[in-house]
Amino acid sequence: MAGQTNVRSLNQLLDCHILTIFLASASPEPTASATADSSQPTDSAAASSGESAAATTDKDAKSTGKSESTGKSTGKVTGKVSSATGTKATKHATISDFDPRLPAGGIQMVTPAAIAGQQYYKVGDWVTFAWNYTSLSVTPTAIDILATCTANQGTYTLAVNQTVHETGEVLWDTGAYQATGTLPLLTETYTLMIYDADSSVSATPKAGYLAVYNQYTFGMYTPQPYESFPAWHCSTCNAALSRSEQQTLSFLLGMGAITVLSFGWFAGSFGVF
């Protein structure tokens, strides 16, 4: 009995050993292959996940960079707009910040002086005008200087776009103008006009800005040719008498003298005297 039991146990051990060997010889390669196959998708998925993560990171980084770039660009544009807006606001403030109760800019004549009285210039001579500016808060970039005459509605240009200095001055060669100008100078009264070259002669005065100056008048005359004394006759003089008036006066004086002499003779004859 004991020997049979040992033989049976030995047979069972051999069967188990054989089964183990068979299983070991049959299953390793498929298992390794399956394991390898199953590991490959996992690695691929991991790689894909890594690539996706990297792509996502790169995309986020690019997006962030773009956002930063957009932020820089937006900041620059905003800065420019703010700067432009500030410039416009400053310009607007320059125009409107002056108290409207302040006077407009003006001109005070220096040559000729105010105490010099009315001036008359001969056509053909040089004429000089000089002036100072008053009550200016904004200095014009340039000025235009004209002379106007109401007799012929003419405008004579003395200077245009003249640079502004503390004391303004203009020299006018009336002889050169009379020789070449299309509108001749008349023996009349003229008005000097000075105004901002960026404005006009009809501009409304503004506080602090140069207003159109048209307060100074002067006379101009054209000299007449010389005539000798016998041929000269003053037709416009109040004390001058015409030839007929002179003859009438002579006749009256003669008749008066005859009357006085006649009366004296008769009076002497009758013994009155």
Rank of each mutant, 00 (worst) to 15 (best):
C234Q: 07
A45T: 13
L261M: 13
Y121W: 04
A151P: 00
A104M: 02
N6P: 00
A32D: 11
L146K: 11
A257L: 13
I115K: 13
S199R: 11
K76C: 01
G254P: 00
L158A: 01
A179G: 06
E166G: 04
I258Q: 06
Q224M: 09
D60Y: 10
K72E: 12
K59Y: 13
F129A: 01
M255L: 11
N161K: 08
H17N: 10
G105C: 03
A176I: 04
A2E: 15
V127N: 01
A34R: 11
P225G: 09
F129Y: 04
I107G: 00
S39R: 15
A54F: 15
A159F: 10
V160C: 04
A26R: 07
S250R: 14
S38L: 12
R243W: 05
G208L: 03
F22D: 09
S49Y: 10
A116I: 01
V110D: 04
S135V: 01
A179N: 12
L14Y: 09
L185I: 08
W232R: 14
S25C: 13
K206D: 05
T70R: 11
T150L: 13
S269P: 00
T35S: 12
Y177A: 04
T222L: 14
D196V: 06
L185T: 03
S27N: 11
F98P: 01
T157C: 03
A61I: 13
K66P: 00
